[in-house]
Design a protein around this nucleic acid. Structure first.
Length: 423
RNA sequence: GGAGAGGUGGCUGAGUGGUCGAAAGCGGCGGUCUUGAAAACCGUUGAGGCGCGAGCCUCCGGGGGUUCGAAUCCCUCCCUCUCCGCCA
């Protein structure tokens, strides 16, 4: 959520900043509602002041043993006006809140302006693209040949966009998770957390998935729970409705969870293989930091995700998302794209974002600033470190040996009983 | 699933329908003392909103109600804890 005060005081400026990412702010509607709000709020407060004063007077009169019946009747009439004013104020406030919750974050000044992903800016590349003296297969064929990746049976059990992984390939999948968790806790200073996979709507509102993106979520209607689309939701909400002491920051969390996405609206997109699934595993990095440190933290967090790919020997590139490709809540995002020989292209495997105070304002995640003595919003960041399913795909495709087998990257061998090859 | 207890400020915890935004303690901050620190003592310290400002308003789990007036009474929902049952 944007700072409502800035939205009031610098409306044209806010509108032009939002226009950079292709969002049209209805400034006329907003300033009209705002004027109404102000008028009715002042009116309400005046009535409240009067009622409070008179009621106190009645209390005193009663204590002094006076007859209070006439005064009571008078103040009673005041109550009707007050009720009316209060409900009017509540209605306008609700309307304003609804609009406010659907306005996206303002892009950081360093974010390139552009309409879609074609305007994203490549920052750097790492690693050599593998050369094969055979026609490289994609992970679907590799998995089928190994007999360890089965989409048909998964479809029987559940439906489309699910996978059944078995045998040593399932072990390799698990090894990736352990490897990533150990790296981030051991080398990068993150605290491991285990969190609920079902969350309430307040948490999703906090990180920005609700109210606007309900269709992307799986909802358990009976109990009004949602399956998490990413660990970002439960982990960032650790700080919801909390005031951190200055010395408690930064908090750095790493968390492995399954992620559940309805993928509504992506029909026909990435239908082959396990690139886009309803359920996948991810190791997530989340940071809650002092505002002054958040851009430094974004660079660090991104480098932590990169380290995973470097140690696995997977070639990748880093891309800054342009304003039009930026997620709803993000002020700046780096995508890590890994090379997939089966597709002959780079595919997203991690997305690292600084949300500044957009999420923290929604969820009231604050810290006490010693300079002011006041609670102020923290800055929140997160990034995949990295997506496990896609990492498995990348390992399979980059480490295939042309004989239907997959070599195990050195870094993973300790996690698979020193096995060197699958198949 | 059954029975009971409870949700109050950064934390713990009092609170008879009427100066209760709320005692007390802890913590924080400032000061006295000290070479410095600790202890002790004194003072100070909730959050959000409106207003240039004096100031005003809201908030005692959420929502609704009763009343001139609600932390306090009523309804409802949520959550936590204890015991019993069931269970990975």
């Amino acid at each position: 959520m944007l700072d409502p005060r800035r939205l009031r005081n610098e409306l044209p400026n806010m509108a032009s900043q939002l226009a950079r990412r292709g969002f049209t702010l209805d400034t006329e509607r907003l300033s009209q509602l705002e004027a109404e709000r102000k008028h009715i709020q002042v009116r309400t407060q005046e009535l409240q002041t009067e009622r409070n004063a008179r009621s106190k007077g009645i209390g005193k009169a009663k204590a002094a043993g006076e007859d209070i019946a006439p005064q009571r009747a008078e103040v009673s009439r005041l109550g009707d006006q007050l009720r009316e004013a209060e409900s009017g104020l509540a209605r306008i406030q609700a309307e304003l809140d609804q609009i406010l919750l659907e306005i996206p974050n303002i892009p950081h000044e360093s974010v390139p302006v552009g309409k879609d992903e074609s305007a994203n800016a490549e920052m750097r590349r790492w690693g050599e693209l593998p050369h094969f003296d055979f026609e490289p297969k994609d992970h679907v064929d590799l998995g089928a040949d190994l007999g360890m990746l089965d989409f048909d049976t998964a479809a029987k059990i559940s439906g489309s966009r699910f996978a059944l992984i078995s045998g040593p390939l399932a072990t390799l999948h698990r090894a990736l998770i352990q490897f990533m968790l150990n790296l981030h806790t051991g080398q990068h200073g993150y605290e491991e957390v285990y969190v609920p996979f079902l969350v309430n709507s307040a948490s999703l509102r906090g990180t920005g998935q609700l109210p606007k993106f309900k269709a992307d979520l799986f909802h358990v209607a009976e109990q009004d729970y949602y399956l998490i689309p990413t660990a970002e939701v439960p982990v960032t909400n650790i700080g919801r409705d909390h005031i951190f002491a200055a010395e408690e920051l930064p908090r750095r969390f790493v968390c492995h969870t399954p992620c559940f996405r309805s993928e509504a609206g992506s029909y026909g997109k990435d239908t082959r293989g396990m690139i886009r699934q309803h359920q996948f595993e991810k190791v997530e990095l989340v940071q809650l930091v002092k505002p002054e440190n958040s851009y430094e933290a974004l660079e660090a967090l991104t480098s932590h995700a990169e380290k995973v790919l470097q140690l696995l020997g997977l070639p990748y590139r880093v891309v800054t998302l342009c304003t039009g490709d930026l997620g709803f809540s993000a002020a700046k995002t780096y995508d890590l794209e890994v090379w997939l020989p089966g597709q002959r292209r780079y595919r997203e495997i991690s997305s690292c974002s600084n949300f500044e105070d957009f999420q923290s304002r929604r969820m009231k995640a604050r810290w006490r600033n010693p300079e002011t003595g006041k609670p102020e919003p923290v800055h929140t960041l997160n990034g995949s470190g990295v997506a496990v399913g896609r990492a498995l795909v990348a390992v399979m495709e980059n480490y295939q040996d042309g004989k239907g087998r997959v070599r195990v990257p050195e870094a993973l061998r300790p996690y698979v009983s020193d096995r060197e090859v699958i198949g």
